[in-house]
Write a protein that binds this DNA or RNA. Structure first.
Length: 594
RNA sequence: GCGCCGUUAGCUCAAUUGGCAGAGCAACUGACUCUUAAUCAGUAGGUUCGGGGUUCGACUCCCUGACGGCGCACCA
């Protein structure tokens, strides 16, 4: 405890008792006496005498001022919401009682879900045994259970209380009885709040109303919370479903304070549990097939591998500009040159562009390269892998996404790019006059069509008129070669590329091709990109001489793909915004704090 | 970047034509030892997102800025 505190009021706990007729409740709460408590934590070690300052409000020593006061005065200030002030006072009272409000380890016997299951098993065993015997004795209990969690709800009945505690994926009722917990435990009960982390030890039993419950024989505070968590009240409807009343739903607050969102909304935890499983299963699937997981540079002197604007940064010792990668592609193919056959990487790419429902500037990409394969092999691999992962993680390949049924089971439709294009536009993508294409682009709402290159117009029209209509996953293959500077020309039709994209629910999930391995052709394609760049296309590529050198050492025939992991998770979890599958999506900075 | 909508108590939301800023939950006080959206009685809680303006009077109308949602644009 801190040094003598000038603000600390004389302890309100006159250990005296009230009159014998005083209600027990009042005696208890007077004993709890937590109001207006303040205890100063003192100055942390390592702060020199001349670096210390005094709180203008209370005069005590402090290493810094939070909004012009020491932390104690800050929490006690009228500026704070009352629940925060109250909790801070309770925390001080806990310290007075010798309870550490920021406890240490606690050795659990079960997590909450398993405690529940263990009890049900014990119950079933007893009932089984009692079958032959005369009418069973005592109802079953499971003793010596030690569990921990956050207090989700609290119903105080005076002499006892029921609460629910929750952990990562479980939720369990606990019953706190004052006569079982003794003076210390009873005092602690009076200082609990929703959100506090607690642990109990006791026997699991079933209440008269049938709920599996831990009867606490001891109660421990693990961590006191100073801020009220925005719990909604939960009702269990007649059909057994949980209905949450009010709760925490403001999107901005949920993203900015994801910790509170996760603590309060089990559905959100579930989305990220699925996300974790998806990544694990992708890895396992690829590892089982002999793919080697590798890591290539995120910080690059020259970016490439996709058409996008990068984030740039600066390395001081090297005195040069660096970029955050927009794709892993060029490094991974260098590894195939180096005989690594089959490689993949799951990592973050960064693209300096707009933010919307399907785009976060920082996103997770799975890229994979497979020697001796072409894009048709990659199609098979893709549909099999995605279907297998969906089944493994979700138990099905059928989903409803944004009100539409989707089935990810293989085989997926295969659609020629040029045929889909002609069908949707009535124009031949190879032969149509640029003016006609431009006119059509304007019709579909592209006011800036005059400034776009032919390829950009083709791409725009395709996205606009074809992609949006596809819901079940489909391979769209055979893009115009000019749109695909890293892909091999299609056999027999060199104006198209051996490339495909997977379109599902109107967005792109995968981009893949037979990798271009002719160094001379690759150099020329880079040079063509360079021209576009010089003509003002800020997404066009630069020439990567080292990559061409690698190709000169021989890239075996290789198929490769990039899969947007965030988007796959969106599909599987039914989320329509990428922000709901990214734990901390990019937001504008917060103005003030509260 | 453009358009529309929004921002009110810790959380979720009301507030008539411009006329005293309210409710539920959470909090606090009290009753209650099998409750479960616990219940009952009472109390407290507000820079109505920031700044400016119109008006006797602004949560409400006007201008401006910040943040967010949706749509468009940009963008795989």
């Amino acid at each position: 405890m801190g040094p003598a505190d000038p603000v600390l009021r004389p302890a309100a706990l006159q250990d005296g008792q009230g009159s014998p007729h005083e209600p027990r409740g009042r005696q208890r709460r007077r004993r709890a006496g937590w109001r207006d408590r303040r205890i100063h934590p003192g100055v942390p070690p390592g702060i020199r005498q001349d670096e210390r300052m005094n709180c203008p409000a209370c005069g005590s020593e402090t290493p810094g001022l939070r909004d012009g006061a020491c932390t104690v005065c800050w929490y006690a200030s009228k500026e704070r919401p009352k629940p925060v002030r109250d909790r801070f006072a309770k925390l001080a009272r806990l310290r007075e009682l010798g309870v550490d409000p920021y406890g240490h380890a606690f050795d659990r016997t079960h997590d909450l879900r398993r405690a529940f299951e263990a009890f049900e098993e014990a119950e079933a065993a007893v009932e089984g045994a009692a079958d032959g015997a005369a009418d069973g004795g005592d109802p079953p209990e499971l003793e010596g259970v030690r569990v921990a969690g956050r207090i989700l709800s609290y119903r105080d009945l005076g002499g006892s209380a029921f609460a629910h505690i929750g952990d990562r994926d479980g939720r369990l009722q606990i019953h706190l009885r004052r006569n079982l917990l003794g003076d210390e435990g009873a005092a602690l009960m009076d200082l609990l709040d929703l959100g506090d982390w607690v642990a109990v030890e006791g026997a699991v039993f079933r209440t008269r109303r049938g709920e599996v419950t831990v009867r606490a024989e001891s109660l421990h505070l693990l961590t006191k919370t100073l801020r009220p968590l925005p719990f909604g009240k939960e009702e269990v409807a007649d059909d057994g479903r949980r209905v949450v009343h009010s709760g925490f739903s403001d999107p901005a607050s949920r993203y900015r304070q994801r910790y509170a969102d996760l603590a309060v909304n089990p559905d959100v935890r579930e989305v990220f549990r699925v996300r974790g499983r998806v990544v694990t299963e992708l890895r396992r699937w690829l590892d089982e097939r002999g793919f080697l997981e590798v890591e290539t540079p995120v910080l690059q002197p020259l970016y490439g591998g996709a058409l996008a604007r990068p984030f740039s940064t600066y390395h001081h010792r090297l005195d040069r500009k660096m970029f955050l990668r927009i794709a892993d592609e060029l490094y991974l193919k260098r590894l195939i040159v180096g005989n690594l056959d089959r490689v993949y990487e799951i990592g973050h790419d960064f693209r300096n562009e707009g933010i919307d429902r399907t785009h976060n500037p920082e996103f997770t990409m799975l890229e994979l390269y497979f020697a001796f394969a072409d894009y048709e092999d990659v199609m098979e691999l893709t549909e099999t892998m995605v279907g297998d992962v969906a089944r493994e993680v979700m138990g099905t390949t059928r989903f409803e996404y944004d009100g539409t049924a989707v089935d990810l089971a293989a085989p997926w439709a295969r659609i020629r790019w040029d045929e889909a294009f002609s069908e949707a536009t009535g124009l031949d993508p190879r032969r149509a006059a640029a003016e006609d294409l431009r006119a059509l682009a304007k019709e579909t709402g592209r006011a800036d069509a005059d400034e776009l290159s032919r390829v950009q117009i083709l791409d725009t029209l395709f996205s606009e008129l074809v992609e949006g209509r596809i819901t079940d996953p489909a391979f769209v293959y055979g893009h115009p070669i000019e749109m695909s500077p890293l892909a091999k020309p299609k056999r027999g039709e060199p104006e198209f590329a051996e490339r495909f994209e997977v379109i599902v629910c109107g967005f792109e999930l995968v981009n893949a091709f037979s990798e271009l391995n002719d160094p001379a052709d690759q150099w020329n394609r880079f040079a063509a990109q360079q021209r576009l760049r010089e003509a003002g296309d800020r997404e066009a590529m630069e020439i990567d001489e080292d990559y061409v050198r690698a190709l000169e050492y021989g890239l075996p025939p290789t198929g490769g793909f990039g899969l947007g992991v965030d988007r796959l998770v969106m599909l599987l979890t039914g989320q329509t915004s990428i922000r709901d599958v990214v734990l901390f999506p990019i937001l504008r900075p917060e103005e003030g704090r509260s």
